[in-house]
Nucleic acid binder design. Structure first.
Lengths: 338, 338
DNA sequence: GTATTTAATGACAACGTTGTCAGTAAACGT
DNA sequence: ACGTTTACTGACAACGTTGTCATTAAATAC
């Protein structure tokens, strides 16, 4: 493979001059530039990025960290949507995307410490992640597409207003006459899950409805879990007339379970999802859900990180909250008179 | 950030000895090793991978190329499944995954030429991709998770038996009494799409059924396209009684369209998908589909590439064909007597 | 016509590692 | 006691770039 020296030799100039041509620096005479470009073309020369990075200390690569099994990540539409936003922005900026699926093992701060990336985007980090200390110590520029601690402003993030979203769903259901509403949550190790529960509690209080502990069911963000929790909810002494689910996958599983139990959705039981995954409108019945703009979340996070790394961080706020909106489809209906 | 020199200074040995300790080489006395490890710990030293790569010429990174818009890639479950397989294998081998979403613009061979990756995995490459020449010229180790040309053995690949898969679907439909079967295909610039059509034609011939040109409808792998093509098919003078779709997304869209047209699935029209995406069994009706093990495709491709790069390529065949299987659910039923 | 600026170029060090090879001291064989 | 092996160690070059600074020649100023 041709190196800068080969080009220098062929065009009869010094390597420094070749470097100047390659990097489009001003102080090169037109004739020399011409000569060098000819040689570059002839040899098919491409600069070696390892060497470049070594001297200027930048890798032109951003690491995306998702501390879950690839299994979970890629079966879940949420991650791919965020990734889509990130990938688009990085690609447009000619920055490489290094995908790091560290489920617990490798301390991901190493990616920065070992100079493999210029910064990190953190997705779906659980509370008390043991890697966070090392991350802070490393000084790696980073941003989360989720909140990482409940009241921590030390790390920047872009995230949806989960509490507000669930409140919207609750208001919708309550206005339809529902009084017995269960919450099917994801793992409470995630701040977003806690915030959803917060929204649920807020709405109950605001509407003078009692908080029934057994109506809060913890699971995981999978259709299987939604399926199991829905059955559990329906076997309660006083089964709820509506289910608010942590995400759309859970909602799909819940709808399936309700059908299997012989309950009609939405006539017998209303179901609300969260995310507005693209398939939500093709499911049957089309799913009422709280839309968060997951794609924008990815875009904004990537843009914020890039501009921070490039030193334009003065203006950008450290934390960015994105709105949610309720999309009413056909999985919710007025409560049956009891 | 601490370098190898700092460690050498602190522990009172040469940098070469530190290097030996870091790389676990044998010829270091226990006491020296102890001393050096102490210093490494104290300074929090991490070797700089740029420098390492520069000298030994390996990046420990594999590039995954998907020449489509991120938009398309990440809304389509197929890609994420392959990625899941790839990511798992690479992660287990401690190899980084560089995601490159080059929709046409950047010649992706550059990733190798510029020494950013040790090899490439190519996904969903269209026929006549202008980057392929450059790729061959670069000598980059690579493998496709799709066939890239119709009769080209120069590039290794792992792919499903699309023709065979469609034949299975056709046999199923024909055995249910269907005689008017339409094929809703993806873009014919993909070899896989042509192979599906080949399977369709094979089955017709084998069963002495006429080939009706208007029954082959070309679109793209999206639910929107499936929706549009299904309407188109149903507006034909002799509408088909069954639709074989290029993938599950198209099938979902087709089912939706049929519902909108007042046709029941499967009573009036049977629909078969392709892929067996995880949501296929939650759709309504649950989708009959041709399963390809997309996840395994990713795993196998990654493993084959790694072992090729590591020089154990003698045994592995250059091309690997994966079986498909028909999963019969509720979107297909006997043809109505006409 | 001389001093001063400007434009273009190259020699060399530096980035942080690993590879090559030579060196030293201890252990061994006879 | 002397040569030979063995175990350990370090000096130095190399990887392919870019940054610093010096050098040269031409252009400009007075």
């Amino acid at each position: 493979m041709a190196t800068i020296k080969d080009v220098a030799r062929l065009s009869g100039v010094s390597i420094k001059t070749v470097s100047r041509v390659v990097n489009n620096m001003a102080e090169v005479s037109p004739e020399t530039r011409q000569k060098v470009q000819q040689a570059i073309l002839e040899l098919g020369y491409q600069p070696n990025n390892m060497a470049r990075s070594l001297v200027n200390g930048r890798t032109n690569t951003i690491g995306v960290i998702i501390p879950h099994s690839a299994d979970y990540i890629f079966t879940h539409p949420f991650f791919t949507e965020v990734l889509r936003g990130i990938a688009e922005v990085l690609s447009a900026n000619n920055v490489n995307l290094l995908l790091h699926l560290a489920h617990g093992r490798t301390p991901y701060a190493n990616l920065y410490t070992q100079r493999q990336v210029d910064g990190l985007i953190l997705m779906s980090i659980p509370l008390g992640d043991p890697n966070l200390e090392g991350l802070a110590a490393s000084g790696a520029p980073c941003i989360g597409t989720c909140r990482i601690a409940e009241n921590d402003n030390s790390i920047r993030w872009v995230d949806a207003d989960f509490a507000g979203g669930v409140e919207q769903a609750m208001e919708h259901l309550i206005s339809l006459g529902h009084r017995h509403i269960a919450l099917l949550t994801g793992p409470k190790s995630l701040v977003s899950v806690r915030l959803r529960e917060q929204g649920y509690r807020n709405s109950l209080k605001k509407n003078d409805l009692p908080l029934v502990d057994t109506y809060i069911l913890e699971g995981s963000f999978t259709s299987e879990s939604g399926h199991a929790l829905a059955i559990q909810a329906m076997q309660l002494p006083h089964p709820p007339s509506a289910l608010v689910c942590g995400d759309d996958m859970m909602a799909f599983g819940a709808v399936q379970a309700l059908k299997e139990l012989g309950r009609r959705v939405p006539e017998d039981v209303s179901v609300v999802g969260f995310d507005d995954v693209s398939l939500a409108r093709f499911s049957s019945p089309p799913l009422t859900t709280i839309r968060q703009d997951t794609y924008q979340k990815g875009r904004i996070a990537a843009e914020a990180l890039l501009s921070f790394i490039r030193g334009k961080n003065d203006t950008a706020p450290a934390q960015i909250m994105l709105d949610t909106s309720l999309i009413v489809r056909n999985s919710t209906a007025p409560a049956k008179h009891q």
